[in-house]
């Protein structure tokens, strides 16, 4: 479980995050949504420690990440897995080497055991036939799946995904969403996904945090999001014709 308490972040005079208070439970897919420039990427970076918050607490199962020593932070980071927007695979390494990388760095297992674990993770994302390929030789969707395999190779307790569906077609996005959701349930990780993909919101949003101009505007589940009367949230969610029509149908069914 990750808890944020009175989290603020400013860059020089500009307040980017203001008084964020929320809780991300384990075994659930927690989504952070918001318009571009709303501060959700900064929030994610504050949670994972790429930015230090101006004030407030980031509690990982009660452990305050902000006040940890460098060594404690490094230890905690080994319990994290992250999937970046552009996958962030290491270009010079093959798919298998990318997935083995965290194991090579931090595991005392033999080469055979590390390779077996990496192959299991690649099998989990249906990429066992691409072990010898390089990131430049595979599609964007496959790169994301390799990133997922790499992120879970050390059995992380916390999984972070920064816009995992960015640049992917709807069908591949669905595959990625379902993969992240099933991994979250299987390994009971605390998963936080930063997205503005409404299909993800409606599909796997078990806990949704809507950020508007740097503050937490709304919180709820995917079922609550459709019926919310928060105008800003509705403007954001139902900006697309498709979702507006879905809402109209749901309201008509209710009456």
């Amino acid at each position: 479980m990750i808890e944020l308490k009175r989290l603020y972040k400013s860059f020089e005079d500009k307040d980017v995050l203001q008084d964020i208070n929320t809780m991300f439970e384990n075994g659930k897919t927690n989504l952070i949504i918001g318009q571009s420039g709303s501060g959700k990427t900064v929030l994610m970076k504050c949670i994972v420690g790429l930015f230090d918050p101006t004030s407030g607490k980031v509690l990982y199962d009660g452990r305050d990440f902000v006040r940890m020593t460098k060594r404690e932070r490094t230890q905690l980071r080994r319990e994290m897995g992250m999937i970046f927007q552009g996958a962030a695979l290491f270009d010079s390494m093959s798919v298998l080497e990318n997935v083995m990388f965290p194991l090579d760095m931090f595991s005392d297992q033999s080469y055979k055991e590390r390779r077996r674990r990496a192959e299991y993770c690649l099998d989990r994302v249906n990429l066992l036939d691409a072990v010898d390929k390089f990131p430049g030789e595979i599609s964007g969707g496959m790169q994301k799946r390799v990133a997922i395999a790499r992120a879970i190779s050390l059995n992380p307790r916390y999984l972070f995904c920064d816009e995992p569906n960015s640049g992917l077609d709807p069908k591949t996005s669905l595959v990625i969403d379902e993969l992240i959701h099933s991994i979250t349930q299987e390994f009971q990780t605390t998963t936080i996904i930063n997205t503005h993909d409404m299909n993800s919101v409606m599909g796997i949003g078990e806990h949704i945090l809507y950020i508007y101009k740097g503050h937490a505007e709304w919180e709820g589940t995917k079922d609550e999001v459709v019926n919310s009367d928060n105008k800003r949230l509705n403007d954001f969610i139902f900006a697309s014709d498709l979702f507006r029509k879905v809402k109209e149908v749901e309201i008509a069914e209710l009456h």
Binding site: R73, A88, F90, P102, F160
Partner: peptide
């Protein structure tokens, strides 16, 4: 973001 990925891994 490959350097960020390394940092996140600790």
């Amino acid at each position: 973001q490959q350097i960020d990925a390394l940092e996140i891994m600790g």
